[in-house]
Each structure stands twice: as structure tokens, then as C-alpha cells.
Computed example of a mutant assay.
Amino acid sequence: MDAPSLNDLGDDAWIEAGQTVSSPDELREYIAHLRTTAQHMRTGLLRAASGALQGQAWNDMRFEEKPLLERDIPAAFNMTVTPSGTMAKDAVYRQSIGTLLAALDAVDQATLTAWLAQVNAADPDRKA
């Protein structure tokens, strides 16, 4: 089975959907979809980065070879402390992937905060 083409996602889908929002409930739904999409992007990037790092695609790895904890993969792309022998060009590339992963984490946190803000505005005493 071939991987879906990333070109089929449509460049303007988010713009078209965003310009139809006309209520707080629709905005909440839009933000929820944004959060889900960002989480899917993060998982895809983690697996792509793992494949690039190990020289073997995620789908081609045996189950036992796949990192069981995806939270360990981003550490390989954090160049705060550059491993001995790492070339600068590799460190910069890895750091950029790490930054992309951090940005997707930030989207996740921001969308959660937006949801909590809307819940709080509707009912400040409701339990989150």
C-alpha cells in the first residue's frame, strides 16, 4: 500500500473552513480539528525523523525495532548538547527537526488552552 500523497491535502482547506466559522461552538470544533491535525503531523514527523535517523522507514522496521516510547525520539534531535563527532550541518538539521516537533507540541498546548478558555467563559465553575 502506497503512502497517501501530502499534495492531496489541499492548500486552502484551513482557510476555506476558517472563513465559514460564525459561532463559538463552530470555533471550538475548528480548534479541535486543528489540534487533531497537529497531533497527526507530530506523529508523522516523529516517524519520518526516526526513519531518516536510522536509515530505515518506520513501516519497514520490525515491531521490536520501533521505539516503544515516541517521546524518546525528539531527544535525538535536541542539539543543546551536541554529541561528540557530530558535524555542524547535521546538528543544525537535527535541531531544526527538534524545533518543528516543539512547535507542534506548542500547537497542542495552545489548542488545549483555547478549549479551556471557552469552557471557562461558558461556566467558570465547571470542572475541567
Results as ranks from 00 to 15, higher is better:
residue 31 I to D: 04
residue 78 N to C: 07
residue 9 L to I: 11
residue 50 S to P: 00
residue 107 V to D: 04
residue 96 S to E: 09
residue 61 M to W: 04
residue 16 E to N: 12
residue 45 L to I: 11
residue 83 P to Y: 06
residue 34 L to S: 09
residue 92 V to I: 15
residue 103 A to V: 07
residue 121 A to S: 15
residue 59 N to A: 14
residue 41 M to T: 07
residue 17 A to N: 08
residue 13 A to H: 06
residue 45 L to A: 07
residue 125 D to H: 12
residue 81 V to Y: 05
residue 121 A to E: 12
residue 85 G to A: 04
residue 119 V to S: 08
residue 114 A to S: 10
residue 3 A to W: 06
residue 83 P to I: 10
residue 51 G to E: 03
residue 51 G to P: 07
residue 96 S to L: 15
residue 67 P to N: 13
residue 10 G to E: 01
residue 87 M to F: 04
residue 120 N to C: 09
residue 19 Q to C: 09
residue 99 T to I: 04
residue 28 R to P: 00
residue 120 N to I: 04
residue 18 G to S: 14
residue 97 I to H: 02
residue 123 D to M: 09
residue 60 D to T: 02
residue 47 R to A: 06
residue 124 P to C: 07
residue 116 L to G: 02
residue 52 A to P: 00
residue 55 G to I: 09
residue 1 M to L: 09
residue 12 D to K: 14
residue 27 L to S: 03
residue 62 R to Y: 10
residue 104 L to D: 03
residue 67 P to S: 14
residue 78 N to P: 00
residue 97 I to Y: 03
residue 33 H to E: 13
residue 95 Q to V: 00
residue 51 G to N: 04
residue 80 T to L: 13
residue 85 G to R: 02
residue 117 A to K: 10
residue 7 N to Q: 07
residue 40 H to S: 12
residue 53 L to D: 14
residue 31 I to S: 05
residue 61 M to I: 05
residue 6 L to A: 15
residue 74 P to W: 10
residue 116 L to P: 00
residue 83 P to F: 08
residue 24 P to C: 00
residue 118 Q to P: 01
residue 52 A to Y: 05
residue 20 T to F: 01
residue 3 A to M: 05
residue 1 M to H: 10
residue 27 L to E: 08
residue 69 L to V: 12
residue 113 T to C: 02
residue 59 N to D: 15
residue 100 L to Q: 13
residue 25 D to P: 01
residue 44 G to D: 12
residue 113 T to W: 06
residue 14 W to R: 07
residue 71 R to L: 07
residue 22 S to A: 15
residue 40 H to C: 05
residue 44 G to Q: 08
residue 56 Q to V: 15
residue 46 L to N: 09
residue 115 W to D: 15
residue 58 W to E: 05
residue 61 M to Y: 01
residue 62 R to H: 14
residue 115 W to A: 15
residue 60 D to Y: 06
residue 5 S to H: 04
residue 21 V to I: 15
residue 126 R to P: 00
residue 40 H to A: 13
residue 42 R to N: 05
residue 78 N to D: 15
residue 62 R to W: 10
residue 69 L to R: 14
residue 121 A to N: 11
residue 6 L to S: 13
residue 70 E to F: 11
residue 55 G to R: 13
residue 7 N to S: 09
residue 93 Y to V: 05
residue 9 L to G: 02
residue 69 L to E: 14
residue 125 D to C: 01
residue 94 R to N: 13
residue 99 T to N: 11
residue 59 N to E: 15
residue 75 A to N: 14
residue 88 A to F: 07
residue 70 E to N: 00
residue 58 W to I: 06
residue 25 D to Y: 02
residue 127 K to Y: 04
residue 1 M to D: 09
residue 29 E to Y: 01
residue 36 T to K: 12
residue 99 T to Q: 13
residue 119 V to A: 10
residue 88 A to Q: 11
residue 82 T to W: 00
residue 10 G to R: 06
residue 106 A to M: 09
residue 6 L to N: 08
residue 77 F to P: 05
residue 16 E to S: 08
residue 114 A to N: 03
residue 79 M to E: 09
residue 47 R to I: 01
residue 42 R to P: 01
residue 33 H to F: 04
residue 67 P to K: 11
residue 119 V to W: 03
residue 119 V to R: 13
residue 121 A to M: 10
residue 103 A to K: 06
